[in-house]
């Protein structure tokens, strides 16, 4: 969706600080994320990129000692406001984790869980449709359509991760957060997921945390580089990889540290 040739801003983080107890993990992050684009967050381990990702759907709430300050505006609404309903928020912002984590239930139940708790299907038929569409979008339908009622944990790693993606898109989120979705997968499964990400960006805004710079370069349009809790540089992926402004970015991308 473009307005005057410029991509719409979907998420806007302003002055975000995150603390684990007394230790500060993120320092004054300011980042705009554009709609229907893939934004990659890269950086060495422990740089805070996953922490930032988890701020966007308030998953840091689960950690008792974690405190988030600053504004994160999604659809003109600051999600760090007290009035924000996390259940609604997480319905709009799906998440895929590093390790595939399907529920130890059937494939069907894995997909139908989200729509059923949010009351998105009125009948069994509608639910069947949602399951089918979600699996098709995740490019898993052909492989599993005959065993929808077998446990989701019986799939291969790559299939499990696509199942998790299907589960995430079953509630039609506007944004999908991916926390190193391919780090536990082999190259073939990784290629499948990357293809999928490219497809999904037509309907969803995607933010992906990755360790692999090659992956960031392949799938993303925009990239943000984190280092020691600070957002060092962000911009078009092409520019970050070919001609970064900051020497730290340069060093990281050329493999001098990290």
């Amino acid at each position: 969706m473009k307005k005057n040739g410029v991509n719409m801003i979907k998420i806007s983080a302003k002055n975000v600080d995150v603390f684990y107890g007394k230790k500060q993990a993120l320092f004054n992050i300011n980042l705009d994320i554009e709609e229907n684009q893939v934004t990659a967050l890269i950086g060495p381990s422990g740089c805070g990129k996953s922490t930032f990702l988890r701020c966007l759907n308030r998953m840091n709430d689960v950690i008792d000692i974690c405190k988030v300050q600053g504004e994160i505006v999604i659809n003109d609404f600051n999600i760090n406001d007290k009035g924000c309903d996390v259940v609604r928020l997480r319905e709009k912002i799906g998440m895929v984790f590093q390790k595939p984590n399907p529920f130890p239930k059937t494939l069907y139940e894995n997909i139908s869980y989200g729509p059923s708790i949010h009351g998105m299907a009125q009948s069994k038929q509608e639910m069947d449709e949602i399951v089918e569409i979600s699996l098709k979008k995740a490019a898993l339908w052909e492989e599993v359509k005959d065993r929808l009622h077998e446990p989701g944990t019986g799939l291969s790693g790559g299939q499990q991760q696509r199942l998790c993606i299907a589960r995430a898109i079953s509630v039609q989120p506007e944004v999908i957060l991916m926390d190193e979705p391919c780090s536990a997968l082999d190259p073939i499964a990784t290629a499948q997921i990357e293809e999928l990400i490219d497809e999904l960006k037509k309907e969803h805004t995607i933010i992906i945390v990755t360790h692999s710079m090659a992956q960031a370069a392949r799938v993303s349009q925009r990239t943000g580089f984190f280092h020691l809790g600070e957002l060092i540089e962000h911009g078009l992926t092409d520019k970050i990889f070919k001609n970064p402004d900051n020497t730290k970015t340069q060093d990281y991308i050329t493999g001098r540290f990290g």
Partner: peptide, 17 residues
Amino acid sequence: PPSIREAALAMGASRMQ
């Protein structure tokens, strides 16, 4: 495993659910 809890929470399930 905490990953199961995270999966459910990230789907928008309340803590109770």
